[in-house]
Design a protein around this nucleic acid. Structure first.
Lengths: 86, 86
DNA sequence: TAGTTATTTAGATAAATGTCTAAATATTAA
DNA sequence: TTAATATTTAGACATTTATCTAAATAACTA
């Protein structure tokens, strides 16, 4: 839960997640969308992966990233529990 | 959205939110629950208030804090949109 | 009014974070 | 094998963050 909140607590990472919602992309394609260096994007992707929000798969010389929405179930439940105020 | 994620990106603040889910509490009562100084808790409460996750009301010499769950609607929708993967 | 209690503000500090450039690694192609 | 391309790792640096103690502010109470 900690890693998940941490991963989402950054505008760039949230935008990456939104990009990956549309379609899988490789690291370079993702980096193109931002005015941030590739190493920085790589670091953001690493944090998203640590949170299990994305998965990565090597495809030749590219690394393709995909969104993993199952991990959002926990977050969703946490929020819903809060909303069911006692 | 930024302030909301920021507010939730801290274990202490998430615990405060969970406490306030059960009942309204004043700053001192909240601080008692943690091994953290009162000024630090006050600071956490300020961040939660900036995110509009809590509201505060002065009651005599005490300040009572309440959870505001309506702000969670945005977060909920953001997550649900992500889950509806295209 | 003077003292006590509740809370916040101010200022300091160590740790975490986001960013960069340069270098390393891995894969493809000539 | 050598060169080119894709990505990550390493190391540095400025900013943000969580925490603390001391001081300020506000509100009761004797």
């Amino acid at each position: 839960m900690n890693l998940l909140f941490k991963a989402l607590n950054d505008e760039t990472r949230r935008q990456i997640v939104e990009l990956l919602k549309e379609k899988d992309m490789n690291a370079g394609e993702i980096a193109e969308r931002f005015n941030i260096s590739k190493p920085s994007i790589s670091h953001h992707l690493d944090i998203l992966r640590q949170a299990d929000l994305v998965t990565s798969e090597k495809k030749g010389q590219f690394v393709e990233y995909s969104l993993n929405t199952t991990i959002l179930e926990d977050l969703l439940n946490w929020i819903l529990t809060l909303k069911n105020k006692s």
